[in-house]
């Protein structure tokens, strides 16, 4: 288990129902978009091999159900997460207003060792809808929220058109690695295969 953190990065995607969590995950992992996704029940899961700073990682992406009551099942899924991706729909104020709730619930249930510095990334999805005319949450507003939560990186995405999805996940990987170094320095049975490239300037990816 000491070696788990070496190569595996666990990422949890949270946000209201229908904001496009499943679509974002599928666009990133399979480069596909479908109008016919099924509602996610409980949680779903995909993995992807990623390279970052000459190192290989397995990204474990947990897609969760958006209905609030499924949060009761969160403990099992959230624990051990390296990064939490919050998603809202730029065309729905409610999905934006609920971000506080998702963030808090994650911190309560995952109980990370350093909640103040736990890496989150915010994605404002569905920027493609109606050519942006139905948009109700401004970029400024979203960024202000991010600033108030300790400078959470922010991306505006379209899972449908594949806009910014790759970039967002690059940033997610980077942030997932933020908490890694100290923990690993003391692991006796880990061997740095690729060479000590880690722990160098991994901030401000966007």
């Amino acid at each position: 288990m000491a070696s788990r953190r070496r190569t595996l990065l666990k990422v949890i995607i949270l946000g209201d129902s229908g904001v496009g969590k499943t679509s974002l995950m599928n666009q990133y992992v399979n480069k596909k978009f479908s109008n016919q996704y099924k509602a996610t029940i409980g949680a779903d899961f995909l993995t992807k091999e990623v390279q970052f700073e000459d190192r290989l990682f397995t990204l474990q992406i947990w897609d969760t159900a958006g209905q609030e009551r499924f949060q009761s099942l969160g403990v099992a899924f959230y624990r051990g997460a390296d990064c939490c991706v919050l998603v809202y729909d730029v065309n729905s104020m409610k999905s934006f207003d609920n971000l506080n709730n998702w963030r808090e619930e994650f911190l309560i249930q995952a109980s990370p060792s350093d909640p103040d510095n736990f890496p989150f990334v915010l994605l404002g999805n569905k920027v493609d809808v109606d050519g942006g005319n139905s948009r109700v949450v401004s970029e400024k507003k979203a960024k202000a929220w991010c600033a108030s939560k300790g400078n959470i990186p922010y991306f505006e995405t379209s899972a449908k058109d594949g806009i910014n999805v790759e970039e967002a996940f690059q940033c997610i990987v980077k942030n997932a690695l933020k908490n890694e170094p100290e923990e690993e320095l003391y692991m006796p049975d880990t061997v740095d295969v690729v060479g000590g490239n880690r722990g160098q300037g991994s901030s401000g990816c966007c």
Binding site: M1, R4, I41, G42, A43, D44, L73, A76, F77, G80
Partner: peptide, 15 residues
């Protein structure tokens, strides 16, 4: 492996 079988079976039961 640090896996909980219930990660997978939870959704099986629920659905």
């Amino acid at each position: 492996l640090g896996v909980q079988v219930t990660w997978v079976t939870g959704p099986w039961f629920l659905s």
